[in-house]
Design a binder for these strands. Sequence first.
DNA 1: AGTCTTGACGAAATCGATTTCTTGGACTTC
DNA 2: GAAGTCCAAGAAATCGATTTCGTCAAGACT
Lengths: 327, 327
Amino acid sequence: MATIYEVAALAGVSPATVSRVFNGQTVSAEKKRLVHEAATKLAFTPNRTARRLRGQSSEIIALLIPDIENPFFTALARGVEDCAREAGYSLVLCNTDDDPAKELHYLEIVASEQMAGVILAPASDEVDLGAIVSLGRPVVAVDRTTPYPVDAVKIDNRAAGIGATTALFEAGYRRIACIAGPAGIETTEDRFLGWRQVVAARKTVLHDGYLQHANFRVDGGRAAMRALLALDTPPDAVVTTNNLMAVGALQALAAAGIAPDVFGLAVLGELPFMALTPTPFVQVRLPARHLGRTAAAMLLERIGGDAQPPRTVVLRAEVNPREEQAL
Amino acid sequence: MATIYEVAALAGVSPATVSRVFNGQTVSAEKKRLVHEAATKLAFTPNRTARRLRGQSSEIIALLIPDIENPFFTALARGVEDCAREAGYSLVLCNTDDDPAKELHYLEIVASEQMAGVILAPASDEVDLGAIVSLGRPVVAVDRTTPYPVDAVKIDNRAAGIGATTALFEAGYRRIACIAGPAGIETTEDRFLGWRQVVAARKTVLHDGYLQHANFRVDGGRAAMRALLALDTPPDAVVTTNNLMAVGALQALAAAGIAPDVFGLAVLGELPFMALTPTPFVQVRLPARHLGRTAAAMLLERIGGDAQPPRTVVLRAEVNPREEQAL
DNA sequence: AGTCTTGACGAAATCGATTTCTTGGACTTC
DNA sequence: GAAGTCCAAGAAATCGATTTCGTCAAGACT
């Protein structure tokens, strides 16, 4: 690993001049040539650690997500990465497992690694951004919001819930249940509120137990669907508030021998590798990748020094009834 | 962001002493107390950049994978992360898109960021590890091997191919085709060799066109399956050499109205969110997460100074005919 | 008592790039 | 021709933690 000093020595100039060559400062053509020659000969790459120590910041942004195995978040990560790389930034992906302690740990790392900024899908409302915000590091909340005055990008979850439920209603279903995520998480809360609003407005049949809370994973969805099917008056359709729970619900339906066109299923989120039969009846596409791109763009603006008051961008989901779904 | 100097000043000791307190050196109890007090009062976190500059290495390991949206690689990443975090390391995930240029770019970053090591799923055989290897940074190749003398963890792909094909044969299929990945990629090459070996040994019917090469993605699998179905003598079963192509194949089958028990389908890889009907007939589980854990463990050993000659660990895949598949 | 060992701990060097300061020379300008 | 301006480029400070080196004092040993 050649250093700037070795390059300087070989080129017969001072280290300062070498630095100037690589940072677009005023250097004579002759020395510029010498430095470039020496640099290529030694395969010189500036040491980013030293640069960062001096410059107090790096070209790395962190993305904290609750579950790297959830396609929603990998699509989001992909969006962030695309945008970040275009701007010359690298991405560090951290898995928080929805655990506030891990989240906090990673936020500390962000600070002490002097990363340029963070995009965070908060594990809970109680996330402690105090330290990082007061440090002046840009933060963008994604998918969920926070009580702190930081930028946020989210989806209009209530509208998504309304859209899904309405689509089921218009398709003729009248006993529409809902498999919601863990209570207290904003994202799923809003989605289920959308469901409730439609169900109340349309005066559909609503039995006890039509609202199931589950964890955000496949097993949660499966258990919730089983519970629904076991009710005295089971529903004829269900809205699941995330992608993995929908998979679980489909599994439970399949196990019970119920075809998903008899039983209406609306999914909030994409089931990327499932575009085969059985297809859910209604799919509300959540623009995960776009979410990521938007968040990254906002973060980069902040990193560039933009100091306008915090913004919240709300993206709208797209409701696709089955007949419009392309294979 | 408090520095060690401020802590030292507040505690009335030298910066060296503060450093010693945090690095388990011999310091008197009294000063230790003073330093800890000062440190908590100032919310001191050591600046990792400075530490790294001095120590020439960081607690970050990089994982370079071709596609972050492929569940196989996210499971692998998960395995790496679990293992790394236990050891106090953080993980940087980089997406290479199977593009050698991006790969090289990230390898340069690894070097200039002074990361502790890299786990790499090489984009191609021509990956240039020369620079990083000669720098002495530990490298572990995962899923695919390289010509360089570095540790590697891979799957016994030929055995996986043999297992899948044999299972189909034993289930009575006699016209077994293969949808392989891009020519020249070791992983898929070995799998398809396994298929060929069984097909040759069992003397099954083998028509022109029974071997299809496709890209590793869903659309490739779909196109390949369409091509197979359009043959004069179409196969009655197919081995797909990765997970996404299997999804595409299932889609094409569904579109053609063919149930997957009539037509035998063997998949190398997991279709994690698809454990519903239609289920592929044979599934060869590739231990992705385990692959990640193993690679991380090996890398950490190297980082710890282990200097034994390069090892290659081969993990065996597990063949699950459908009846054994648990829901 | 005197030398040796040991241990705590401060001063200062170090990691490598960037960024002020400074300097010396070329070039204007009156 | 003297004074002022400008610019390339080297010397040195800087970022913050670690680590070597050296010092001083207390305790051990002969």
